[in-house]
């Protein structure tokens, strides 16, 4: 799957290129440590990074980090999958069938500008504060960017290719599956990449507002309990999750679009 022998030179080159930046990052952390210990920054607000590191290590070693992390991951994942599936299906339908476009376009344009965060309180009234409400909030945030991008991608499919497909006697389903979807994939994935960030935002917000479960709730709860080191430790875990999701998605995107000129080695 991964070409260690062939990619190693490229990877080591990237590592060397990133080195100065990592040194700066280490310097910033060291500077913070010094500033806190010298009393320039109040300990109650910003504990020294080493102290946060110790708490973080405790969380990792005891396995305490796993349950909240998994809860947030599950929430982001289910909301992302559901929202993307509906978005892609809706986008393809609206892009391919003019009747569907005429029927749904005004509704989409009406609901799309609502800041999805504002929908969390109404959803809490209807669905309670459990998983259903959280997953619905995340899916709603994911849905629209994916839908709009899919629509754009489907409408942008090369006419020549569509004509060629018709000449070869492809049916609608075959054309959609083997021509339109692959051709629209770069757009769809771009929409999904935007949505991934939004999914994480909505997941954290829903956890904070519902007051239960996951990393978002813990960060807010630790702050309100004045367990500041714990708060920063959980924040680091959340940041790593965000970074990991982003990186994984970029890798998956590059694999899925390996046929695009920009991704060829």
């Amino acid at each position: 799957m991964i070409c260690w022998t062939r990619c190693w030179p490229a990877m080591s080159r990237r590592l060397v290129a990133a080195l100065p930046g990592l040194v700066v990052l280490a310097l910033i952390l060291a500077g913070l440590e010094v500033a806190v210990n010298a009393g320039w920054i109040r300990r109650a607000l910003m504990p020294p990074p080493s102290a946060i590191g110790l708490v973080l290590w405790d969380l990792l070693e005891s396995g305490e980090f796993a349950a909240p992390l998994l809860a947030t991951m599950k929430l982001v994942f289910s909301g992302f999958v559901i929202g993307s599936a509906i978005g892609i299906a809706g986008g393809v339908a609206m892009g391919w069938f003019p009747a569907a476009y005429r029927l749904l376009e005004p509704l989409v344009e009406l609901v799309r500008p609502i800041p999805k965060a504002a929908l969390v309180p109404p959803l809490m009234l209807f669905l309670g504060i459990g998983e259903t409400m959280k997953i619905t909030s995340v899916s709603l945030a994911v849905l629209f960017p994916v839908l709009v991008n899919t629509l754009q991608g489907v409408r942008g499919v090369d006419r020549m290719m569509l004509d060629a497909a018709r000449t070869h006697g492809w049916g609608t389903r075959h054309t959609l599956w083997h021509l339109v979807l692959p051709a629209a994939l770069p757009f769809i994935l771009a929409g999904m990449r935007i949505s991934l960030g939004l999914a994480l935002v909505l997941a954290v917000l829903a956890e904070m507002l519902s007051g239960q479960g996951g990393l978002g709730f813990l960060i807010l709860d630790m702050q309100r309990s004045f367990l500041i080191r714990q708060m920063y430790a959980w924040l680091v875990i959340l940041a790593v999750l965000g970074l990991a999701l982003n990186t994984l998605f970029l890798l998956a995107e590059r694999r899925a679009l390996h046929w695009q000129p920009a991704n060829r080695p």
Binding site: A17, A18, P20, G21, L22, V24, L25, I28, G197, L200, V201, A203, V204, L205, M208, L215, G216, I219, L220, M222, Q223, M231, Y232, L235, L238, A239, G242, L243, L245, N246
Partner: peptide, 21 residues
């Protein structure tokens, strides 16, 4: 080169989580 990695590390933090600190 110097500041890029720091920026890339901060960017993916979901913004509501930054509010408590």
């Amino acid at each position: 080169r110097l500041l890029g990695p720091t920026v890339e590390l901060i960017r993916p933090i979901p913004i509501p989580a930054v509010i408590p600190p």
